[in-house]
Design a protein around this nucleic acid. Structure first.
Length: 437
RNA sequence: GACCCGUUCGUCUAUCGGUUAGGACUCCAGGUUUUCAUCCUGGCAAGAAGGGUUCGACUCCCUUACGGGUCGCCA
């Protein structure tokens, strides 16, 4: 039997990290077992559904690299994959309930009559859970068809899972209490229930439920902030699941190879943006310079910085210095233009070194006299200048860094010397020395 | 309120009756880097509480507390 999983979002907003993780787990499970991953759009609530929201889900899925085998914009034998287009199918299934007298009319709507008995589910994550449906106060017969003729979530969800031959339903724990309802419907249909796996919810750092608008909630915000999709996938996979090893950095294919529902936790996890940034940095660190340059370029362009011919060399100088891609422009602006910001704190620190000014003046002269410009030669002249003044070369490095970049932190000094070139180094050192007075 | 699920460092987690309770993020201290980052070493820091069961409990059971979820003609 082929494994068939599905992600069934309702396009009422943007793609939420909780939803993204649900999609990821379904995708991973399908890929792990050589199965089929279905995307089904649950757009029965016409008032709240928008084209933008639908597109946001597709965009989010595509960005994360979660491709679907069946669904919108794909073929498939079980379509259509929009619930809004499956009216006849639902009508036919609803008729079965009418024929078997499992539904009754109530105020124009139709309610499904539950079997009043204990219902036990065997959840792949939560284990055996029994809900007693003899207690009617807690489990009133549910409406399956509204008075306006439309069908509610529980009904269409079950019908579609049956119709689409879904074998495994991996969804948020907020659906755990819905499962007996779904099981009862499936039983009334005489269908075979899929296996269920309810995964714990993702919480805010303060423990409250994470919802839209909370920091980190919208998947669409991640690319803008300079996160790599591979890092976000890596991070959310580790929220509620672990490999039982000490390894923490994984690519999507890595995860697909080792994912298993057995290793899914039972308790909710809080979302720690700091660790997510660290994971991002790890992914950045393992990228090639060319790939990094490609990924960082839009961020540099967005700040209207000129893209130089040696752009890749510039990127190589900062690749290992940033956690997020959106830090790149500010980290390299001084290499691309001359009117960059000066960090006064760094300048004050240089002033604290009384000899810095004259040393820099000498250094500018020495730089200017060089016939040939290279990092090694420039460093050599730095050493000479320091030695002549009876100072250690190390003492000159910080002032030189500030003179060239206007800040205390940044790329390797050798990279800066190389990337800036002789003329700009001479000019900046001289100008900075003068500004010291 | 009823019902369901959960509870190990601040956070993510390992442990499936016997461990000095391990790793990671964050933070701190050293070291490497003539500079910055990376990196390396070390440190701080945890079994919610109370009862059982057992030679022995973080692990199994019960109670309480706390957290989360569900109880719609939302999905």
């Amino acid at each position: 039997m082929t494994v068939r999983t599905r992600f069934a979002p309702s396009p009422t907003g943007y793609l939420h990290v909780g939803g993204a993780r649900t999609a990821l787990f379904n995708w991973l499970f399908a890929r792990k077992h050589g199965g089929v991953f279905v995307l089904r759009v649950e757009d029965t609530d016409e008032v709240r559904n928008t084209d933008e929201a639908r597109q946001a889900i597709f965009d989010g899925m595509n960005w994360l690299g979660l491709d679907w085998d069946e669904g919108p914009e794909k073929s498939g034998d079980f379509g259509p994959y929009y619930q809004s287009k499956r009216r006849e199918i639902y009508d036919a299934w609803f008729q079965k309930l009418v024929d078997t007298e499992r539904v009754y009319e109530d105020g124009g709507a139709w309610r499904f009559r539950f079997d009043r008995k204990p219902v036990t589910m065997n959840d792949l994550v939560c284990g055996e859970v029994t809900i007693d449906y003899r207690d009617e106060s807690n489990t009133p017969d549910m409406v399956v068809k509204r008075s306006d003729g439309s069908y509610v979530f529980h009904f269409v969800n079950v019908v579609d899972d049956l119709e689409m031959e879904i074998t495994h339903v991996i969804r948020g724990e907020d659906h755990l209490m819905n499962t007996p309802k779904h099981l009862q419907l499936i039983e009334a249909f005489g269908g075979v229930a899929p296996k269920y796996a309810h995964i714990p919810l993702i919480l805010n750092p303060d423990g409250s439920k994470m919802s839209k608008r909370d920091e980190g909630a919208a998947v669409g915000d991640y690319p803008r902030q300079g996160f790599l999709s591979s890092a976000v996938v890596n991070f959310i996979a580790l929220l509620g699941w672990n490999s039982k090893t000490e390894r923490e950095i994984y690519s999507l294919p890595d995860l697909a190879a080792i994912f298993t529902l057995d290793h899914v936790n039972r308790s909710p996890a809080r979302f720690d943006l700091e660790k997510c940034k660290w994971v991002n940095q790890q992914h950045l660190l393992s990228m090639s310079v060319a790939d990094f340059a490609l990924a960082a370029r839009p961020f540099v362009e967005a700040e209207n910085l000129p893209i130089p011919e040696n752009f890749e060399a510039v990127m190589a100088a900062v690749k290992d210095k940033v956690r997020l891609l959106d830090e790149v422009p500010a980290a390299i602006d001084f290499l691309l233009k001359d009117d960059f910001a000066i960090d006064n704190e760094a300048v004050t620190k240089v002033r604290g070194n009384a000899a810095a000014g004259s040393l820099l003046v000498s250094l500018a002269e020495s730089f200017e006299m060089m016939d040939e410009w290279s990092v090694d030669l420039a460093k050599e002249s730095l050493n000479d200048v320091a030695k002549a003044a009876g100072a250690k070369p190390g003492q000159l490095m910080f002032p030189l860094r500030v003179a060239l970049s206007g800040r205390a932190h940044g790329p390797d000094l050798g990279d800066i010397l190389n990337l800036l070139g002789q003329d700009r180094c001479v000019a900046r050192v001289r100008h900075f020395a003068q500004s010291l007075g």
